[in-house]
Design a protein around this nucleic acid. Structure first.
Lengths: 173, 173
DNA sequence: CGATATTTGATATGATGTATAACAATTATC
DNA sequence: GATAATTGTTATACATCATATCAAATATCG
């Protein structure tokens, strides 16, 4: 709906002794009412998604992996011998946009393109040893920091229910 | 994680009599395994969000309103007398980016900027009559088509639970 | 009061994500 | 063997998102 990566909600910088804002008496200057907005799933969905991605980025920052790159490596590891079109399609990436993304991963030696012997048009994608190592570390960081934090916030049962509903929407909506 | 607005999953164009792909016998050419990806909340969240936004766009297409524009009009209606900074911050929009957005809405006479008398730096934002009319029609379309479809897919109780969990993540994560 | 700092809306600019068209090389189809 | 389709790629356009900076207006404080 809107929603950028920014703070929103007018986060008061915490440290600022002198200001006028503490006029808590009047109804003026109060926090804005979200109103019906808080009942719209799309709005909550977008804001939650930004938070999740932001946290993912922080948790996996030492490995310099974006959520998109992580998903590519995960998919490559699970599905060896596939070409660019197959991987891109599965992840909902357009082939033209997948090229630069692979260039980035390949230049860091996390994956490699191998010309197929059967069909010399296509590139078979493989995770390199270094890619596998980075992916393993990423999985641990994500599990230990990111997903663990979600479990702490929602509880395992709720987290599972949430995941199931999101998957349903993604699949059948 | 990845995920664009595109079809993904290699949607077979439905109408194409001649192709090679029906080699359903071998394990080759089968659908890819998502593997651990399907256990990552961020991935499901992103894909669900894209679906929801896409459906929102279609449902409200006759009014030519994006989710972001809809959220702005909703917030303006609920919170009269606010300036650009307050509205933008609440929605998580950066002020510089909010300018062009307001230009668009104002050029269509859906809202208006009014110089404040108290503080002549700020613009008080108001929904115009036309904006209120468009917003009313948008609400009906969204409720009748978009949210109704979600209720049909998840059921009202699950939909409410989903919304609550997403709001929790957006608020406390 | 007057100097300095802050706020507001705005502009310019860049980075990133997403989408389409078109191309050469290769393969499939008939 | 001519035509069509596929694969990876390039170019390009557009939207989204982010930062720095500015002028005008206001606030703060010596």
């Amino acid at each position: 709906m809107t929603v950028s990566k920014t703070d929103a909600a007018d986060s008061a910088k915490a440290s600022r002794p002198t200001r006028k804002e503490p006029r808590n008496g009047g109804p003026e200057g109060a926090a804005l009412q979200l109103g019906e907005l808080s009942e719209h799933l799309g709005y909550a969905l977008k804001r939650a998604q930004l938070k999740i991605f932001d946290d993912f980025l922080r948790c996996v920052a030492p490995l310099q992996l974006t959520p998109a790159q992580f998903s590519v490596l995960l998919l490559l590891e699970k599905n060896p011998g596939r070409n660019q079109t197959e991987i891109a399609n599965t992840l909902g990436i357009l082939r033209p946009n997948f090229v630069a993304m692979l260039d980035g991963l390949e230049s860091r030696d996390l994956c490699a393109r191998i010309r197929s012997a059967n069909d010399r048009r296509s590139h078979i994608l493989v995770v390199t040893d270094k890619g596998r190592a980075v992916l393993a570390r990423a999985k641990k960081l994500v599990a230990a920091k990111h997903e663990a934090r979600l479990n702490a916030l929602l509880g395992p049962a709720n987290r599972a229910a949430l995941l199931a509903m999101l998957a349903t929407i993604a699949r059948e909506f």
